[in-house]
Write a protein that binds this DNA or RNA. Structure first.
Lengths: 215, 215
DNA sequence: TGTACATCAGTGAACGCGCGTTCACTGATGTAC
DNA sequence: TGTACATCAGTGAACGCGCGTTCACTGATGTAC
């Protein structure tokens, strides 16, 4: 029952204005990401983050009202970067592209998304924190929802389809499975990154071929 | 870097022997599951669990060396229940079943797995905790690995295929995506449970039809 | 170009609280006789 | 069937520590003149 928690303030407080402050702000985020890897969500604390960032705790509180807000900022930045990869990828197709061209590019899309998530220190840990920590769930779900709707609309326009419920469901499922495959690939438990990405891409391709065949 | 953490003892200590003790033990697990929902991984503590279970903290320490061990027991029980659903599902097919029969049952499999995970209080939170908390990751990955290998072997036997790398990869991907779809369905952010399950099942079916076509 | 000063950034010290963990202990259970 | 007693189960009290958060403050920055 999510409602049993009191709601948590997630937005940052003061924005950093001076140069020094911007460095401090970035320092806080970088330290938090490192600590997410080293000690985990269950042990990360404002005290640890401030110490790692080389500032005192009240300095952290100047920018963030609590530790969830730090994690939220970290998650939002990663979601933005992932979504930018998706937008760039889609934009490469010309307006007369056919479905098979897009399908051939799925592998590339998943790979690039892996890359951008791996480049962010603690990328995997951030993604899993967004799943596991209640006040942050909304961030990931809303982000995926937005990308899925945009994706559905783009497919409809490109291929001249109706933007109906079944297309929206397919778009949402593809986005969600795509990002799940990316996490799986980075986590590494199910085989090498390249293997997981190519097998995941194949699954998504076959899914859309099935949809194409039934139209 | 996971290696930066000291390793954590996860196995239970004393097994409960008397009747009263068994009740206490189950009480601890139930309380932990409830608290995982109410306060989350980042705030759950042995103090809270003991209080909720109506015992003092040292009584908890009689059975579990630390809070990770409680979460581990919770996770192991859920993995076992999920895997039992899978085994039961597969066993229903006679030894002369054809691929299409299995594919037609995927929807049912995912739905039953959802059910068993939803029945467990805090089921979703347990699954996401297994992803996000480093010392527990191995439990989930090993469990999925075992199911995938068993699944690959069963498919090979049933359909008379070679149990080669490509079959093993396909089996692993199916298991991993299957469980990811189940989490997605229970989480509810991507549509109704029935929608997500049926769309996820369709994806897995189309994936295997693709594999069948290429053999 | 120099500097006064308003605003921004960060500090030091303190608070009460809940955390994990351990100890020597009392009380409950169940079984051997 | 009754009970002595070994073993199992749970308690009460205590510990030092790190947690989140706030306060009144000093110091740094940058710009208006």
């Amino acid at each position: 029952m999510a409602g049993a928690r009191e709601s948590v303030e997630l937005v940052a407080k003061n924005r950093p204005r001076q140069e020094r402050a911007k460095r401090t702000y970035e320092n806080i985020l970088r330290s938090a990401a490192e600590l997410l890897v080293e000690v985990g969500v269950e042990r990360i604390s404002t005290n640890l983050i401030a110490e790692r960032a080389g500032i005192t705790v009240p300095a952290l509180y100047r920018y963030f009202p609590n530790k969830y807000s730090v994690l939220h900022a970290l998650g939002a930045a990663l979601m933005d970067r992932q979504n930018a990869v998706f937008a760039d990828w889609f934009d490469q197709f010309s307006s007369d592209a056919v479905a098979e061209e897009l399908l051939a590019g799925v592998d590339d899309l998943l790979y690039r998304t892996c890359e951008v998530s791996r480049e962010q220190p603690g990328g995997l840990e951030i993604l899993q924190t967004l799943r596991a920590v209640e006040p942050l769930r909304k961030l990931r779900l809303d982000s995926h929802e937005r990308v899925a709707q945009q994706f559905g609309a783009q497919v409809a326009r490109l291929l001249g389809w109706d933007l109906d419920d079944s297309l929206l469901r397919a778009a949402r499922m593809s986005i969600e499975v795509g990002y799940a495959v990316v996490e799986m690939a980075i986590e590494g438990g199910a085989g090498s990154e390249a293997d997981v990405v190519s097998e995941g891409a194949r699954m998504i391709q076959l899914y859309w071929r099935g949809i194409l065949a039934s139209r």
